[in-house]
């Protein structure tokens, strides 16, 4: 499939608020996007007309219960079958920040045995507590499963901002180690928080901005097509979005977030 023919759906509901910059990231790479309200999608039922699906960041429905929980339930209730068909066709789904929370809450991630009826993990309130907006470093840990990091060498460090108050990736305490082993076995770990030299954060703030278990910043499903992460790659596309571009004399034209979108697009182009 030609890049220009790819159509990506950005799904939104009340409280989604990172859709415009996510849309801009795709546009910059020559991919068509459409910003569709969930209600509109429920009416149209045409999810399969899109090659990719993105859940952008924000505070869906105010996140009044638990971040992403309300949207996840609504999604399954209103669009469950379409979503299932979409997943089974190995069409990629990307969740950023609140979108990641939705993917976890809806049982799509990690999805050890496919979509789970209950969340298998959670994105809990940050430790230290509170909203935190800062640039962090994340390291690509994936061995090749994840289609969103296919263009990123393993071990490479990206610099991308986070902005959230509920991003602490956790497994149930008693099964923590077992599930972590599971993640590694299936190659589902994608990004881990680290410092600027690539040393793992080991839970230490601010390199690990939210206290995530095992410094986990993003994971994918066993097929590598569904991917969620707390950092915002769509805010790290252009040179002028970098936190220190004024320090450099010749700054690169693009930021580190771009390669994640490029990897996805490469998959879509190949998949046809």
């Amino acid at each position: 499939m030609k890049r220009e023919e790819i159509r990506v759906c950005l799904l939104r509901v009340g409280g989604t608020n990172c859709d415009s910059e996510t849309q801009r990231a795709f546009q910059e790479l020559g991919v068509q996007t459409e910003n569709v309200h969930l209600n509109e999608m429920v009416k149209r039922k045409n999810l399969m007309e899109y090659q990719g699906l993105v859940f952008p960041g924000g505070f869906s429905y105010g996140d009044y219960v638990r971040a992403g929980a309300i949207w996840a339930k609504r999604l399954i209730a209103k669009l469950g079958n379409e979503l299932k068909t979409f997943v089974e066709a190995n069409r990629p789904i990307l969740g950023i920040c609140n979108g990641f929370q939705v993917l976890v809450e809806s049982g799509l991630l990690p999805g050890f045995e496919g979509m789970s009826a209950y969340p298998e993990a959670t994105l809990a309130t940050n430790v230290p507590q509170g909203y935190n907006c800062r640039w962090v470093h994340i390291k690509n840990e994936n061995k090749g499963r994840c289609i969103y990091t296919s263009k990123i060498p393993r071990g490479e460090v990206l610099r991308i901002p986070v902005a959230h108050s509920e991003g602490r990736f956790l497994f149930p305490k008693q099964k923590e180690q077992e599930l972590l082993d599971n993640l590694y076995e299936k190659d589902l770990v994608v990004f881990r928080y680290c410092d600027n030299k690539g040393e793992y954060a080991e839970g230490l703030f601010p390199s690990n901005p939210n206290g995530s278990f095992h410094d986990i910043a993003g994971i994918c499903n066993p097929e590598g097509t569904i991917f969620g992460l707390m950092p915002h790659p769509e805010r790290a596309i252009f040179w002028w979005q970098q936190p220190d571009w004024t320090r450099q004399k010749n700054w690169p034209r693009y930021g580190d977030g771009k390669i994640i979108f490029e990897s996805l697009i490469r998959y879509l182009v190949k998949k046809g």
Partner: peptide
């Protein structure tokens, strides 16, 4: 840091 000063991706 408790204010999102990056959302919309236009903060230069």
């Amino acid at each position: 840091r408790t204010y999102d000063h990056e959302v919309k991706g236009n903060t230069t």
